[in-house]
Design a protein around this nucleic acid. Sequence first.
DNA 1: GTGTAACTTGAATGACGGTTCAGCTTTGGA
DNA 2: TCCAAAGCTGAACCGTCATTCAAGTTACAC
Lengths: 188, 188
Amino acid sequence: MIAERGIAATRIADVAERAGTSPPAVLYWFDSKDELLTEALAHEEGRFRAQLVERLDGTSASERVAILIDASCGGSDWRLWMELWTRALHDREAGRTRRELDRLWRREIATTVEAGQRAGEFAQADAGEVAAHLASFLDGLAVQVALGDPEMPIERMSELARQMAERLLDCSLPAPEGYGDEVLEAVA
Amino acid sequence: MIAERGIAATRIADVAERAGTSPPAVLYWFDSKDELLTEALAHEEGRFRAQLVERLDGTSASERVAILIDASCGGSDWRLWMELWTRALHDREAGRTRRELDRLWRREIATTVEAGQRAGEFAQADAGEVAAHLASFLDGLAVQVALGDPEMPIERMSELARQMAERLLDCSLPAPEGYGDEVLEAVA
DNA sequence: GTGTAACTTGAATGACGGTTCAGCTTTGGA
DNA sequence: TCCAAAGCTGAACCGTCATTCAAGTTACAC
């Protein structure tokens, strides 16, 4: 609901309708609209991480980087994070949440980079620097994709991010899987 | 006003108060709140471009790239563009505007890159590709900066973007000017 | 001066939507 | 079977704005 209409335009009545119930019923489970929105975003974040952990299990560093990029491209709806960003601009609590999520995400990348360096798969470079580079680049690309920029289809995002990682780490990454119709459709 | 409180929380009464007048007076000049917001964003965009054109006058390609990066870091309030982004997610008209602005911005970069290549200042590389890289990277960095990420002060954004450009173009860019207190404060 | 257009205002108006409330139905245990 | 708690509902309630309106004030042309 949030991804479709945006936080600002999402009414309790919309959520209720989607859930096949009534506005007061929604407020029976959530104390307020604000709490509902906050929990929705937290839930999505949890879903994303869980899916990521599963995919990362028992893989090489190169594969991991490829998976992280891949997950960025299609694993979650960037519209949600963009909503969180603008929320974070004016809401202290949302700001804290956002910073924490980003810190974890960059750390995930940095840790993987370091592992790859120890395994000799990647060139020596400051892992934190690489993580900052890659994370920012992915954010920027995702904005274009989420906004349906004709010059930035999701395949190009994937390709550019991949090139960037290979350049930063001086390595070769395994090929990404294609994107299923659901993902392509969600982006469109 | 929009940068401070966000589009969603900006009331006509706020604008009126800031302008030292009354809500009906604001609606005398703008047909609706929506038009007011749209024109505000367009106005800021115009201001930014005008300032850019002035700074770019009579400079070498290397200087131009440095100026473009510099302008990205401090020339405008990214909070406004982030507001435009989320607006564009659900508003067809805002989406068109955003795409057009981004197209112009990438073209500005690409044109400069091509000029620099003709002048022998930059390595040969697909200018469109370089522009897409750089523009996305700047967007991503700007998000972190705008959100006050402690790991991404504006100086680091400037430094990373600069390195990225130098790497993409295999060149050396002139040093950026420091950021004045106003910019640093606006970001904080 | 005086009339007119431009501009502004305080006071409604009205829609919208979160929240509350009093009571209904369902569920599950004894 | 009975009863309490859990879960839900329709119908208010109420605050918050954008927007309108009728009437004022100013500025300026003649």
